[in-house]
Design a protein around this nucleic acid. Structure first.
Length: 295
DNA sequence: CGCCAGGTTAGAG
DNA sequence: CTCTAACATGGC
């Protein structure tokens, strides 16, 4: 067991981030227990288990034995996953300028944009979640991971890793249909997996491109439309201005705040987001956050 | 039973 | 380019 402490950034709330990580009880890629996050991570062919806990001014990381040499990679993953490196001061100023949103820095202060660093995982999660309610989406993801992903058992924990593209590329549509995936989702998932295996797409290819090119590259994949492409920019590439256009939850949040009176007021939405240049993705996150009551 | 859900696609006009 | 139906199923 090796430990490490990361200094928390300004405007960081362990509690808020933990709330986000724990808000859905059916998450299968990590566990939240006793205020700690436990997760498995594949690094260079090895699977290491790590644990995150609150250490006051620091975040504590612990890696289970054997994984000592992977601490730098785990630390880098956690920093990226929980978005340590975005300063939020300016965003909170922007929120305070909009009366309907001015409560947010107080209510959700320190909430960070928890990402999905792996591009393949992020795309699969989008396809799984399209046009179904979130709880069913988590059910489908669990079935997907439990049936086709990896398992690690260490120190009394059973943890799972996301299926690899080579595994998913070999799946038959009927295997996914049996898990109650629609025919469309089943086809998209296997086709996207093949695109990764073929090298038709990879993070390395997409990352260097400007936003429009990234969107275009992503939308060439089957099952990837504007919503998914922007969601991927937000959660996997950390584009600060990516907005999941037309998102059902986002529209509901805008309605609840009286920022629009009916869905389809795209010009008014554009105006609002224009005020949040540099932090549009964070505005989406905080609006999503507002849809869930505090536990 | 009906309507909506972290949408996308194919086909028609 | 815009509009529509179909997709499959759960939650309410």
């Amino acid at each position: 067991m090796i430990h490490c402490a990361i200094e928390k950034p300004v405007l960081f709330s362990y509690e808020e981030c933990l709330w986000f990580l724990d808000r859905n009880l059916d998450e299968c890629l990590y566990r939240v227990e006793n205020g700690e996050v436990v997760r498995a991570l594949c690094i260079g062919g090895e699977t290491v288990l790590f644990r995150i806990s609150d250490g006051g001014d620091v975040l504590r990381l612990a890696i289970s034995d054997g994984g000592d040499k992977h601490m730098p990679a785990v630390e880098a993953f956690v920093r990226a996953w929980i978005d340590f490196d975005t300063p939020l001061e300016r965003f909170y100023e922007q929120l305070r300028e909009v009366p309907a949103l001015s409560y947010m820095p107080e209510q959700y202060g320190g909430l960070r944009l928890i990402g999905i660093p792996d591009l393949f995982e992020c795309l699969c999660w989008c396809v799984i979640g399209q046009q179904i309610n979130l709880s069913f989406a988590y059910t489908l993801k669990r079935r997907f991971v439990e049936n086709f992903g990896g398992v690690v058992e260490k120190g009394g924990h059973v943890l799972r890793t996301f299926p690899t593209c080579s595994t998913v590329a070999e799946l038959h549509v009927e295997q996914l249909r049996a898990l109650q995936f629609s025919g469309g989702k089943a086809r998209y998932l296997t086709q996207i997996a093949r695109a990764f295996c073929n090298g038709d797409i990879s993070r390395k290819h997409v990352e260097p491109l400007p936003r429009d090119e990234r969107l275009r590259m992503l939308m060439r994949l089957p099952g990837v439309g504007p919503w998914t492409a922007n969601y991927v920019l937000m959660k996997s590439f950390r584009d600060p201005d990516a907005v999941a256009v037309g998102d059902a939850g986002l529209l509901n949040a805008l309605l609840r705040h009286g920022l629009i009176t009916h869905k389809g007021e795209s010009s008014r939405i554009d105006e609002l987001f224009a005020q949040f240049a540099g932090y549009r993705a964070y505005l989406v996150l905080y609006l999503w956050r507002s849809l869930s009551a505090r536990a």
